[in-house]
Every structure is written in C-alpha cells, then in structure tokens.
C-alpha cells in the first residue's frame, strides 16, 4: 500500500517538475519547427529610403506615425511592400463628456488634410504639421505629388511644406495656416515648388560642417534642437554653435534663425 502511494506521489512529482519546466523554461518542448520564408520585393522598395510610390521604406516612415494615420497611439511600421502597417496602432478611445446628464459618449471628430501640388521630378516633399514632420512623399517623374494626413482634429494648424531635390538642395518652408473643420476634408492644393526655389543646401552650411540650427548634429533641425536651445535661453556663455548669430547670448533672434532653417 505504502509502495503504491509512494509511486503515485513520485509520478506526480515528476509530472509537476516537467510541467513547471515547460511553463517557465520551455526546455521540454520536443516539437521541431521549420520555417521557410518567402519574400517579394517591389522595385526600389527595401533600400531604407522612401522612393516613388512608396509610403515608407524600412525604418524610414517619412515622419508618419499612428497619430498621423488617424489612430490615437501605437507603433506604426512599414510592410515589405513599403506601405504603412497599422496593425499595432490603437484606435481613439471614446471620450466621456463630463457635462452631466448621465455621461454622453462623444467620439472625437477628425478629418483628412489632402496636399497636392507640383515640383521638380522626383523631389522629396516634406509635410510638417505645427512644426513636426507628419509625412514625406516623392514626387512622380512628371513632378506631381499628392499625400493625405489622416485623423486631424478640427482647429487651427500651421502646415509647412518644403522639397528636397535629387541634388539635396532644399526649398524654403512654405507655410499654410489653415483652419481644419470637421465638416469636410481640407484640401491644400496647387502647391508649387519651382526649380529655382531649391536654394538652401541640405549639405553642410556652417564652418563646422553641419546644418544651421542642427544643434545635436543629427542632420535635422527640429524640436530636439529647439529643446537644446531653450535650455540655453537667457543663460550666460552659451556654447558657440548654439549662439547662431554670435552675439554671445541665446535669445529670440537665435530661435528665429532656427525657425527659418527648420526641417522638422
């Protein structure tokens, strides 16, 4: 009798240890999985640089995010066919009104903003929304471009558009202050960036070999640079390359210069 009990307990013990191992360590998995990966590539897709007809390429999302695609949050990725993959994006959560009356559920209204225009063939067009890069697109061989920023809440926005030609010269930032309504998509059309407007070199402009305003040397002039400059705002003896007009202080003039060379 006692031997029987001991055998049963020992069996249970072994079973427990094996189960625990499988649960915690996966070390008792005997199945062998083999996988065959098939990949297909679109011409120009996969070079980590957005090309004609591509919304994104590898890690280059052209400034797009789940938010710019109309979602509340999440991680936007690029598919193997260079289209946006929004499977990890999270939809907007309904907002509960606190105006009384039992809590009325109100869904935030958001609209599309459509950009169309012409520029030099194959120029890269950058779209900024309130100073932040929202989308990038490459113009077609005939110079035409169109792109949409989705999920924009109604309100006043300062959209910016600039281009970069194949020689890496940039056009100055065109500003489009627009009030986005929730009644219909907003069209910002007939944007024209002519050949002779690509006058700002994207290549080094300063004696130190960096873009003017690119304080952290990442080849962009954006909010990160603004934050670094803000840290030095009104402080004594700022580092030389933060003081853009060399007057030994960081003040509004330095910010204005940075704003002119802004890339988003």
């Amino acid at each position: 009798m006692s031997t029987k009990i001991s055998i049963t307990i020992t069996s249970l013990l072994i079973l427990l240890v094996v189960s625990l191992s499988i649960f915690l360590n996966n070390s008792f998995v005997f199945a062998v999985t083999e996988s065959v990966s098939l990949s297909a590539s679109v011409a120009g897709c996969g070079d980590d640089s957005i090309g004609v007809g591509e919304s994104c390429d590898g890690a280059d999302l052209g400034g797009a995010s789940c938010v710019s695609q109309g979602y509340a949050s999440g991680t936007l990725t690029c598919s193997s066919s260079c289209a946006f993959n929004t499977s990890s994006c999270v939809s907007a959560t309904p907002v509960v009104s606190n105006s009384g009356g039992g809590g009325v559920v109100m869904l935030p209204t958001a609209m599309d903003v459509i950009f169309t225009g012409t520029t030099v063939p194959l120029a890269k067009i950058y779209i900024l929304k309130d100073g932040q890069l929202a989308a990038t697109i490459v113009a077609l061989p005939d110079g035409k471009f169109t792109t949409t920023i989705r999920g924009v809440s109604p309100g006043f926005y300062n959209f910016g558009v600039y281009g970069e030609d194949v020689k890496k010269n940039r056009s100055t930032l065109l500003a489009f202050p627009i009030y986005v309504t929730n009644s219909a998509p907003t069209n910002i059309g007939d944007i024209v960036i002519k050949y002779d407007e690509f006058t700002v070199p994207s290549k080094p402009q300063t004696s130190t070999g960096y873009l003017i305003g690119d304080l952290n040397r990442d080849w962009h002039v954006n909010f990160l640079d603004f934050s670094i400059m803000k840290y030095w705002y009104t402080k004594y003896l700022p580092p030389k390359h933060i003081d853009l007009n060399n007057d030994k202080k960081v003040d509004l003039i330095d910010f204005s210069i940075m704003g002119y060379y802004w890339t988003g």
Binding site: L128, D130, G131, G155, F156, N158, G160, Y162, L173, L174, A175, P177, F223, F226, K230, Y233, L252, F255, S256, M258, G259, Y260, W262, G264
Partner: peptide, 30 residues
Amino acid sequence: KSVINFWIQKPQITKLGNVRFSGLTPGGFN
C-alpha cells in the same frame, strides 16, 4: 488656437500686472 507652435516661454504671470510670453512658429505665418 494660437498661431505659435512652440513656446520658449509660455504666457504666464511673471510679476504683478505682467504676463510674459515668447514663442516660435517654424516657417513663419502671415
């Protein structure tokens, strides 16, 4: 609804009877 995109100094009371502000809009506005 401000036209200013980034505040260097958000509008706030810095002393009695005085609201200071300082801001930037990249690319400008008109």
